[in-house]
Simulated assay, not measured.
Amino acid sequence: MNPEKYPELPLVIGKVSHHSIELSWMNAENKPRNGPPERWTRFSVEQMDPKTHTYSTVYMVQHPSCCKGLEPSTSYGFRLRVTRASGECSLSPVLSVFTTREPFSGKKLHQAVHREDDEELTTVLQSGTVDVDVYDKMGFSPLMVAAQKGFTSLVDILVKHGADINKKDSTGKESLMQACFAGHLDTVKYLRNCGSTCESQDTDGCTPLHWAVDGVHLPVITYMIQDGCEVRGRVFLSLWTPLMRVSAISGNAAVASILLQAGADVNVRDKAGKTPLMVAVLNNHVELVKLLLYGGADHHMKNEYGAGAADMAKAFVRQVT
């Protein structure tokens, strides 16, 4: 039997969220059922397939129902099928309902940053429901991520919405260090103008200048020094200066040259008594060794074990061969 359209029981929208829609209807027969089940009037909610415009039953119910597991900001079509004991069927008009937008969250905030979406970022922050400094699963705040990626316009939005420029990750790095290591000069300048200090230290005692040196970013290094960052600053555990970091990590002579011209101590000692020259020799940074010697490095100096640069060079050769 073909169902009759437009019964006396239209669907009514109840509570709507981003993943569920509550549907109800006025049911004159909604009372304790008597007699065998085959004598009962049955109600079923049918959902329309948006591609084929066909319907399938999603709920066989007597009482109001809640359709769950839906997508946010999506239109859904529902109708009510009423089947009486006589076999007579009737259908309600199709009810179109939009689920709501997904609630703003820390995840949404970080997604906007990663997509470099200024508009979405502003919308999320203006909602007032999300902490501007919320950490992601890696332990980074949105400002740290934006700084590391060099998204200066997003950094500006975050700071103007109260982001903490001094917020640190689990290793003690803050946004300025992230920008320095990644080499984003515009972001570095912005953060410095906002008050980020070059005296801040991570858990190992490294400063933003140490991180700029590790990243081998000459424009950032030059700017940081011109902006007053201390080239003789030491890591408190190893007593390594930025020049010592060059000798130990990159071996980049151009970076070392900038530091030396800015007044870096070429004969500074670390905790074990090693100089930048000794460390450069141990790491086989040949061009850097030449630059350090030219810059006044004393090759006669000894570490706490009485070994000098020449001894270390001999040891290096033996290890290689």
Rank of each mutant, 00 (worst) to 15 (best):
V134S: 05
P64R: 10
D117P: 03
R79H: 09
Y55V: 00
L158S: 10
S141M: 14
S73G: 01
A146W: 00
V45H: 04
A147G: 04
S75W: 01
K137S: 13
D156A: 15
M48S: 07
D156G: 15
C89N: 09
E119V: 15
G106E: 07
A112P: 03
Q47K: 14
S73C: 11
T100F: 00
L109K: 04
T100S: 10
M138V: 04
E119P: 02
Y59S: 10
D156K: 12
S56A: 14
R81T: 09
V61K: 12
C66Y: 14
D133E: 03
Q126N: 14
S127H: 13
D164V: 05
D164F: 11
T57G: 11
M138P: 00
H161A: 14
E116A: 04
V94I: 13
Q111W: 13
E46C: 10
K51F: 14
A85W: 03
E116Y: 11
Y135P: 04
V61S: 15
L125W: 01
H114G: 03
C89S: 12
T129L: 08
T122M: 03
S92A: 13
D156R: 09
S105F: 06
D131K: 01
M144V: 06
L95W: 00
Y135H: 13
S90N: 08
E102I: 13
V145E: 01
D49S: 11
K107R: 07
G69L: 01
T54I: 13
V113E: 02
P103S: 06
V58C: 12
D49P: 06
Q111A: 10
Y135V: 15
K51A: 13
S65T: 10
I165H: 03
V132H: 02
A146G: 05
V61Y: 02
S90Y: 08
E46N: 07
V132E: 02
L91Q: 07
Y55A: 00
H114W: 09
K160C: 03
Q148G: 09
T52R: 03
L158W: 00
M144P: 01
Q47C: 10
V113I: 15
Y55L: 02
L121E: 01
S153I: 02
S153P: 01
L109S: 02
Y135N: 11
G150E: 08
F140N: 09
G162Y: 00
P93E: 03
Q126A: 07
L95A: 11
K108Q: 09
K107C: 10
L143R: 11
G128C: 02
V159G: 07
A163N: 05
Y59A: 12
S96Q: 10
V58I: 15
E102P: 06
Q47A: 13
E119T: 14
T52H: 11
Y76H: 08
Y135L: 15
Y55P: 00
K149S: 10
L158Q: 07
V82R: 14
S105A: 08
P64M: 08
